[in-house]
């Protein structure tokens, strides 16, 4: 039976509904993680296409085709950013069988809605991320003969991605919370679980306290993990000198250094070859 008092009731609910809470957390995280990932891929693709430079005078056909594609992508971004996700979920879940005669399962519908929603937001973020990279980076890449594709994949996108990492994190956290609107199509995510737990014994305050705590724990863990990933992407603060700076030491006065750091394999090999060539005897110790 339902015990008296706030904390005993919370414990009671947790015990009684542990399985549905666990399933709720699982679905919430599954939908949020997978959809954020797919959404980022969509956003990346759309954002990249939207920043392809076109020159009407050079290739008119390509220019006009791109204009059409860009228009369609723009429409996609505007429509999905401009309407509530809850309505989109209902629209797609109930509308698809009606219009196209295809029935989507609840979960696939959930993935679809959250992904294309995230994609619409990410497209703008990616576009901004690409535009924020100094044009000098592109010129540097062009000057060594890279084409547009090579410039994007090896120079611009890695930097743009690093810069939009906080936004990707933002989207993940928003998605964890916003999966709650999928209750409308019956996905048994965390809010759905909470509602059923609350309804059975009329313990609304207790049940929603539990949900608050769970949501916070999930988003907090994710935001910390993302910070760690960002740090990783930045690489070490310091770098190891591979050997002495020849110019600082003055030409001809430098020699092979003892205790070289791990990463110097190549330098050592190169120096060894050179030393052999010069037949100089003093390689090795300081």
């Amino acid at each position: 039976m339902l015990p008296e008092g706030f904390f005993p009731r919370i414990l009671f609910l947790l015990e009684t509904y542990s399985q549905s809470f666990m399933q709720g957390i699982l679905y919430t995280m599954l939908i949020a993680l997978v959809s954020t990932f797919i959404g980022c891929v969509i956003g990346l693709a759309v954002g990249i296409v939207q920043t392809i430079p076109t020159d009407k005078t050079e290739n008119a056909a390509k220019h006009y085709i791109l204009q059409v594609i860009k228009f369609i992508l723009n429409a996609y971004v505007e429509i999905f950013r401009g309407t509530p996700m809850m309505i989109q979920a209902a629209f797609i879940y109930y509308g698809l069988p009606y219009v196209f005669d295809v029935t989507l399962g609840m979960l696939p519908a959930a993935f679809l809605v959250v992904s294309i929603n995230t994609g619409a937001y990410m497209a703008e973020t990616v576009r901004g991320g690409i535009l924020s990279i100094d044009p000098g980076q592109t010129e540097g890449a062009m000057a060594i003969g890279m084409n547009h594709f090579q410039t994007m994949t090896s120079v611009i996108l890695p930097q743009a991605l690093r810069n939009i990492m906080p936004q990707i994190g933002n989207n993940l956290i928003i998605n964890i919370k916003d999966t709650c609107v999928l209750t409308i199509i019956g996905v048994t995510e965390l809010t759905y679980a909470t509602r059923s737990a609350a309804g059975a014994y009329y313990t609304f305050f207790e049940a929603y306290t539990i949900a608050m705590v769970f949501y916070f724990i999930l988003t907090f863990i994710c935001s910390r993990i993302l910070r760690v990933i960002e740090k990783r992407m930045d690489g070490p603060e310091n770098f190891a000198l591979a050997m002495d700076d020849a110019i600082v030491l003055g030409e001809g006065t430098y020699k092979y250094h003892g205790n070289p750091v791990e990463t110097n394999h190549d330098v050592r090999e190169f120096k060894r070859d050179e030393a052999l060539r010069k037949q100089s005897g003093n390689g090795g110790e300081r």
Partner: peptide, 8 residues
């Protein structure tokens, strides 16, 4: 003269 800095 930048060989020492390859990791930077």
């Amino acid at each position: 003269g930048m060989a020492p800095y390859i990791n930077a």
